[in-house]
Design a protein around this nucleic acid. Structure first.
Lengths: 215, 215
DNA sequence: GGCTTTCGCTACGAGTCGTAGCGTAACTGG
DNA sequence: CCAGTTACGCTACGACTCGTAGCGAAAGCC
């Protein structure tokens, strides 16, 4: 859930401004946690709404009051994993890229992320609402890292500043697709480990390309 | 199906060497075609075995006699699309890479490939048999293009020959994951068009990296 | 206390899954 | 030509999941 929390009254409820019984925040977190647990145990295809409800100690109808689909529920359940992604300054562009690659790989190694990410993307090819939700809940959070890393590299003088803002956006999108795409493909399609050696080779290839293009 | 055809007797059957009524090859092709049609109309999640059987004019039990899963069926149905992938000699490494990127993008633009590819990969994270089937039916066919393109570039003198065969295999895998991953991510996750401009930018980035690494 | 909304619970029709059983069709070897 | 073997179409079935409707009770606002 992209929950918009306002002022807290009691720990389990939220002041919505509207009248009536407020929705239980505990139920929300319990449901999302139960969803991740079910993903680990059962995987995407065998995960059922009824099972998630039972695990969370909630009625099945409560799930359907908050999420229309299994898809939307899983996106929200997995989205929080992407909050862990950070980009500490490691001193150089190469180190930063390698760090984010390994971090993203560690995320993809988790079984709940593995099975859920590809599945919801597959569904999003036929569901525009889901695609938008994925973009705001997952994709944009990753893309921020690219923008941050580039700004840092520019400040270090490793990458040139780009004058045209449109061209800058395009190149950021390109770099993002290359990094995220390569890691996902290596981890899930080729199904081979994204270890330090691979991360180093990939980073060297990418940064070399960036360097020779920039000059 | 990775059908092993031997000698043909009549157009609709295959001499298997075994006794009994042979399996209808017409049924095979009709089922796979019906599966692709159903993927286009309904998408992965709403595709049902019963529907495919009806479209193909076959009994539902016939499907289960040949494929254990919906997953395996869809892999075989989509695999033939990858036979179209070719790598004509365009004269330079840059042109070859750009060509294969656009070709792969055209394949991913087809609705039956879009919805099916990510879905079966998602399932393969929990099904080893499926993962192996995907590898031989889809992934290896793509990877051949990378090996072919590199050999050509080496013959042209654009890329250095590598002495260590293991290192050569690793670098081929890396390049494959970068190309395929970036295109898939751009097309399905970012959901933006893989047009000529993007293909050119990406190719330039990749080939520049390869060039500066090789020297 | 009255109003409003959410909650848990039960029940339901609709749809899908994968299998079993049957009689028939097709092809092979003697 | 006939017996043996395998595939086929068809029907029916239990088990499961889906998403919804209806109910009384709970929890908060005015």
């Amino acid at each position: 859930m992209v929950a918009v929390m306002c002022k807290h009254t009691r720990p389990e409820t939220v002041r919505t401004g509207r009248t009536g019984r407020p929705r239980s925040v505990e139920a929300d977190t319990a449901i999302l946690e139960a969803t991740r647990a079910a993903l680990v145990e059962l995987g995407w295809s065998k995960l059922t709404m009824g099972d998630v409800a039972t695990r969370a100690g909630v009625a099945k109808t409560t799930l359907y009051r908050r999420w229309t689909n299994k898809n939307e529920l899983v996106v929200d359940a997995v989205a929080v994993l992407f909050d862990e992604l950070e980009l500490p300054d490691r001193g150089s562009l190469i180190a930063d890229v390698e760090g984010v690659v390994l971090q993203f790989a560690a995320l993809l190694a988790r079984p709940e992320a593995k099975t859920a990410l590809m599945a919801v993307v597959a569904e999003s090819t036929r569901d525009d609402a889901l695609r938008i939700r994925i973009r705001s809940a997952i994709v944009d959070r990753q893309k921020r890292l690219v923008l941050e890393g580039r700004a840092r590299a520019q400040a270090r003088g490793e990458l040139p500043y780009e004058d045209d803002p449109e061209a800058a956006a395009r190149s950021a999108d390109l770099i993002f697709d290359v990094i995220a795409g390569a890691v996902v493909h290596r981890a899930l399609v080729s199904a081979e480990p994204v270890d330090q050696a691979w991360a180093r080779s990939f980073t060297l290839l990418l940064v070399s390309g960036l360097a020779s293009l920039g000059s």
